[in-house]
């Protein structure tokens, strides 16, 4: 197999090589002929190449037109190529970078009357106050904060003066409450004791009999109180009548 393929390859090689050599030789011969025949042709060919064509031939940078211009410090495009080349921002930039050579009117650098109105409107919202007003406000803010702290301190001072009185009040109130509770407790105990004496044995306070007894006792006490009051009233009346009679 290998021998066959080798043979085939060698055959093809031979077949191809021969005509190439022949062609090359033929072309060489023809050029030689031309040069030998007319000298004038070569000179005119050189002269017909314009400067631009020569430049294009010499330029081997492979950069595109705009980029080559930028690399050489020139305006990238003579005419607008992209849509954004017509914007004011781009034109300003071109003037900023390439100066007079950019063919941009320097007047574009400043805002138009409309832009000015826009800027003024923005500034009236972003900076509504003058420096003096801002200073005044800042000072007022500081003053109001100081005032607040001061009033708070004053309130604390005043309350501290009253503190001892308040403490005394609270203590008295609690003592009174305690005393009342004590009295109520004693009274109840006394009542239970009396009920016990009445029945002659110890009785559970939850018992119905005990409760009945309690109600009875309360009624009696109320009656007693009422009677006492009546007595006093009568006495008063008598005294009054006596004093009138006299």
């Amino acid at each position: 197999m290998s021998i066959i393929s080798f043979k085939g390859f060698s055959y093809v090689g031979k077949f191809v090589k021969v005509p190439i050599v022949q062609c090359f030789l033929a072309r060489n011969a023809s050029i030689k002929n031309e040069v030998q025949d007319i000298d004038v042709v070569t000179t005119t060919a050189e002269k017909t190449l314009s400067e631009g064509e020569v430049k294009a031939i010499c330029d081997k940078s492979r950069l595109n037109h705009g980029h080559r211009n930028m690399v050489n410090g020139r305006l990238p495009y003579d005419k607008p190529v992209h849509r954004y080349h017509n914007t004011v921002k781009y034109k300003r930039r071109m003037y900023g970078r390439y100066g007079e050579a950019s063919n941009v009117s320097p007047g574009l650098a400043w805002p138009t009357a409309e832009d000015l109105a826009d800027i003024r409107e923005y500034e009236s919202l972003a900076y509504p106050l003058t420096i003096q007003e801002m200073q005044k406000n800042a000072l007022e803010l500081i003053e109001s904060e100081r005032q607040e702290i001061q009033t708070n301190q004053q309130r604390i001072d005043n309350n501290m003066k009253k503190l001892n009185g308040w403490l005394k009040e609270v203590k008295e109130k609690s003592a009174k409450k305690l005393l009342e509770a004590q009295q109520a407790k004693e009274k109840k105990e006394k009542l239970i004791e009396e009920v016990k004496k009445h029945f002659g044995y110890k009785i559970d306070p939850k018992d119905d009999r005990f409760k009945e007894m309690l109600v009875k006792r309360e009624k009696e006490e109320k009656k007693k109180v009422r009677e006492e009051k009546k007595k006093i009233r009568e006495e008063k009346l008598l005294n009054y009548l006596d004093s009138k009679a006299k």
Partner: peptide, 23 residues
């Protein structure tokens, strides 16, 4: 900034919380 080809803007005033420091 100069390569932007714009007019030099005005400097703006400081904010509320810095006005007392800078005055």
């Amino acid at each position: 900034f100069f390569q932007r080809g714009e007019a030099i803007p005005r400097r703006m005033i400081p904010p509320d919380d810095a006005i007392l420091y800078y005055s």
